[in-house]
């Protein structure tokens, strides 16, 4: 229990990951799948940022005078996650575009029905 208290953000991230994963796994609807994937990605971002965050420290933005480097949280994870979010967004974008295409071609975005139409 102590561990959960200490690292509730991480635990939350993992739970989120699981939720996203389950959505991805169990839904046939493409849009829902994409949502699930996004939840998954987000959970990872959360985890990453939580690693960088140290309770009681400031964001590494110089507001009033320089303080010791120990006074700031690690900025790198946040920076990285910006990239990660960009990547995730682009992937989501591509995925959505593909979903549209899918609907045009098959007339549905329910994957099981699409699979039923397999003609080979």
């Amino acid at each position: 229990m102590l561990m959960v208290q200490n690292s509730y953000i991480e635990v939350g991230a993992i739970i989120l990951f699981g939720i996203g994963f389950m959505i991805l796994l169990l839904n046939n609807n493409m849009i829902k799948k994409i949502i699930g994937m996004n939840i998954m990605d987000t959970s990872i971002f959360l985890l990453f940022i939580s690693i960088g965050y140290i309770h009681g420290k400031e964001a590494p933005i110089i507001v009033d005078g320089e303080i010791n480097a120990m006074g700031y949280v690690n900025p790198i994870p946040s920076g990285l996650m910006l990239t990660g979010i960009v990547v995730a967004v682009s992937v989501t974008g591509l995925m959505l575009a593909l979903t549209i295409k899918l609907y045009e071609k098959y007339g549905t975005i329910e994957l099981d029905e699409i699979m039923n139409m397999r003609s080979d």
Partner: peptide, 30 residues
């Protein structure tokens, strides 16, 4: 072609899952 779309979605879906795991791994070692 419609097969392409389907295949690409399959690929993309799994691939993002994979990269999600990689990112998770990076998070852990970081």
């Amino acid at each position: 072609k419609k097969e392409n779309i389907k295949a690409a979605i399959k690929y993309l879906m799994l691939s993002t899952l994979g990269s999600g795991l990689v990112l998770m791994g990076i998070a852990f070692i970081y």
